[in-house]
Each structure stands twice: as structure tokens, then as C-alpha cells.
Amino acid sequence: MKGKVWKFGNDIDTDIILPGRYLIYTDEERLSEHCMEGLVSDFKSKVNAGDFILGGTNFGCGSSREHAPIAIKGCGISAVIAESFARIFYRNATNVGVPLLEAPGVSALIEDGEEIEVDMENGLIISESGKEIEFKKLPPFMLEILESGGLINYLKNQKNE
């Protein structure tokens, strides 16, 4: 996976990822139009498919709204990288098929706008200047859930096998 980094700070909460007034929607397209709008206006139109979100500690804290990772997915973000993630967000993002890569120390090493490469198999983030940063590799079943596009598709695929 290769893409540009959109860098944010610590404690990025799910209200900032997707404000409460848009929870009346359930479809990915409409939700993604409002992703991160309190911090970056028209985030979706600025992001290219495959780009990454980089956060600090406690990314995804607050509300349990699954609308938040769905909005991120709808923007075409290929993975969220952070120092650490909040618990409910971690489950929700995995369940909707957004990979979360936990890499302590990462925010000091990668700048906003940098082009990076992510090697899921070896658990490595490679910066523009060639620095290698390790993240906690995901177990095989989680990779399968993500490759299926989320938990529900994964369960369906398993039923059909």
C-alpha cells in the first residue's frame, strides 16, 4: 500500500471524525462527505484513494458510532496509523474493514503530506526518506476480515466455503 499521509494529533475523537448531526445517515457515500470536517474542510475531495490517516495516541476515542470508520472507509483511506487506538473504535474499524496499524513512536517520524509505503506482511511502514517503522502485525484472521471488506462479508464467505 502506498499513499500520502494526513497527519492529526492525539485524542482524535469520533465526533471529530464524524459529527453527531450526520448520524441520521447510514450510507458510506453521505457519511464520508462529512469525514473530519471540523478539522479539514472537504476532506474527502482532497484525499486520494489509498492515502493514510496518521494519528497520535488514543485515536478514535469517545462515541461508539460505527459511522466514523465507515466515513473513513468511504474517503478511500487505506489504513489508519496511530500511536494507540481507543477500544471501541478498534473493533468497529476492523469490523467495517479499515486496517488500524498501531506503531508507537510513529508520529515523531512521519510528517504531514509525506508519501509512505506500508508492508502489511512484514509489519513495516517505510517513510519517504526510507526510514522503517515497525507496527504490530495483524493476526491472519484479522487480515482475512479486512481483505473481505469487514466482518459481515467475512462471515458470509466462511458460510459459503
Partner: peptide, 10 residues
């Protein structure tokens, strides 16, 4: 504890 909508579906 709080959970998301996919977990709730399960």
C-alpha cells in the same frame, strides 16, 4: 459496555 453496530448485529 458500548459496542458498534456490526458487533451489535452479531
Amino acid at each position: 459496555t458500548g459496542i458498534g453496530s456490526t458487533d451489535m448485529a452479531m
